[in-house]
Design a binder for these strands. Sequence first.
DNA 1: GTATCAATTGAACGATGTCTAATAAATCAA
DNA 2: TTGATTTATTAGACATCGTTCAATTGATAC
Lengths: 204, 204
Amino acid sequence: MGRRSDHTRPQLSELILREGQAHLAQVGFAAFSAREVAKRVGYSIGTLYNVFGSYDGLMLAINGRTLTDWHDALAAALQAAPLDDPQARLHAAIRAYFDFATANRHVWTALYDFRLPPDAPMPADYAAKLAGLTGLVVAEVAAALPPARRDAAPALARSLLACVHGHCFFALNGTFALLGEDDPLGAALARVAEAIAAAQGPAA
Amino acid sequence: MGRRSDHTRPQLSELILREGQAHLAQVGFAAFSAREVAKRVGYSIGTLYNVFGSYDGLMLAINGRTLTDWHDALAAALQAAPLDDPQARLHAAIRAYFDFATANRHVWTALYDFRLPPDAPMPADYAAKLAGLTGLVVAEVAAALPPARRDAAPALARSLLACVHGHCFFALNGTFALLGEDDPLGAALARVAEAIAAAQGPAA
DNA sequence: GTATCAATTGAACGATGTCTAATAAATCAA
DNA sequence: TTGATTTATTAGACATCGTTCAATTGATAC
């Protein structure tokens, strides 16, 4: 065949990305296959390689799209949160974090299941998306700190991100269920509240 | 061939487990292959299936062994910690947590990269090992709490475990490096210290 | 209308997990 | 000791995977 006019290159890329993410959402990372994505979009496997270069390239692009979706979900939740209550905004962000991961378990999990080969450098645009996502949290953490301690926000935000990630990860992979924990989100919120409270008062 | 007397069944199981874990440590979960393990032990792939039933069975057994190794490392670190300083013991445990993960990145990462099919139940002995590992931490958290709050230890321990896991995970997968964090262990210790401190005083 | 070019294809390759019939070795019977 | 039975082990077949590439097809330019 060779349908050069069915889709432009950007259209084709978008189509593959959409179907790829949908396939990932359905079967999960372990069962994900580039060939299956090719079937879904009705192009041959070779065309997938023309557009994304490799399996890793495709997975990276799908994960990049997931990062964008996640960022948008967080931003939307923050837009709906009260401007004058930093604590409430932070909690809203964490709730949105959990909500996105829960509602999109497979694509969210794939963000961490997939790793490119040890030598391969992370594409700049992917790193930028990750930084952007982090930036949202840094801003909210900074707003929750007294002005004199705002410079500690980036480090604290990174740490709280890791803490929340751990809770979310254990919630989704069944560790918490196994250990009898039935309110992972509540636990994460409690830890974050303690850390923010600790950063209000003491050290110079 | 058919070397029925080269190894007894337990010996063969131990041999496969040892070489399997070594292979996993060398190539990582993504490149791990049961066939390669068969080559390493000098038996055919079929024999591997006789002993462990499936790829999943083999991975589960290897991860079980890793859990045991990890538990032993934590227990050893706790044995070397001062008996009368709960805070120091907790910090020693967290340090041991990081040390094990760092020194055994591939096998530690495989604990979370591998997941059995959604319907398959977790084997009881695997769940027991996980619970045992958690139990170590629960005991130390309990010791760090005032007697009146000891009943909160299990829930707090689960949460702190998740928090530490998140920091360790981000440290090993490069997220922290990307975000400019150069002391993941320090951050984890700080969060745990804050949580323990918060549990000393306030609520009834 | 023909030649050039680029996109698309599908067959081929090696490797993987999984299964099964054939084979070898060990055990037991006579 | 010999023969029959059981059991461990093997090698091959199968479907699928990521990857590559020569051939083909459609569009474009002359």
